[in-house]
């Protein structure tokens, strides 16, 4: 179970959230000009990064707001949480150690920790809503 720090609501269990896949995939600027290959890229091809991955999450049973997260797809460590419509924070300096085969201990699945926030957005713990998180530009599902 990931523990996810919603920018609006604070730390909540993963079960309150809905996964939205890769972030920063804009709708084509001139859709009429795309060929079949380019449409396929937009519809079906997404990065499948091993390591730091920018992805979208929806706090579906909380504030119902979308936000972006930078998460390591090997360790599942949450590295940053930042508003939609803002650029991906720099993840330089992070390494992705190969963890090899998984531990079978049940508690090893609890990997989510409140992220060190490098986007400048407050990881609100009081339930207040920072203005910077209410800009769901491009927040399509």
């Amino acid at each position: 179970m990931l523990l996810i720090s919603c920018p609006n609501c604070g730390s909540r269990d993963e079960t309150e959230f809905h996964y939205g896949g890769q972030a920063h995939v804009p709708y084509p600027k001139n859709p009429n000009e795309l060929n079949d290959r380019q449409w396929a890229e937009f519809l079906f091809y997404r990065d499948n990064t091993k390591g730091a991955f920018a992805e979208r999450w929806l706090h579906s049973t909380g504030c119902r707001q979308w936000f972006n997260m930078l998460r390591d797809t090997v360790t599942y460590e949450i590295q940053a949480i930042y508003p939609m419509g803002t650029p991906r924070p720099d993840a330089a300096g992070r390494t992705t150690p190969d963890t090899g085969t998984a531990s079978t201990a049940a508690d090893s699945t609890t990997t989510g920790t409140a992220a060190p926030d490098i986007s400048g957005t407050s990881t609100a713990t009081t339930g207040t809503t920072p203005a910077s998180t209410t800009a769901p530009e491009g927040a399509t599902k």
Binding site: T49, Y76, T101, A102
Partner: peptide
């Protein structure tokens, strides 16, 4: 639901 290479 999430992408993952962690085998867990």
């Amino acid at each position: 639901s999430y992408n993952g290479y962690g085998q867990r």
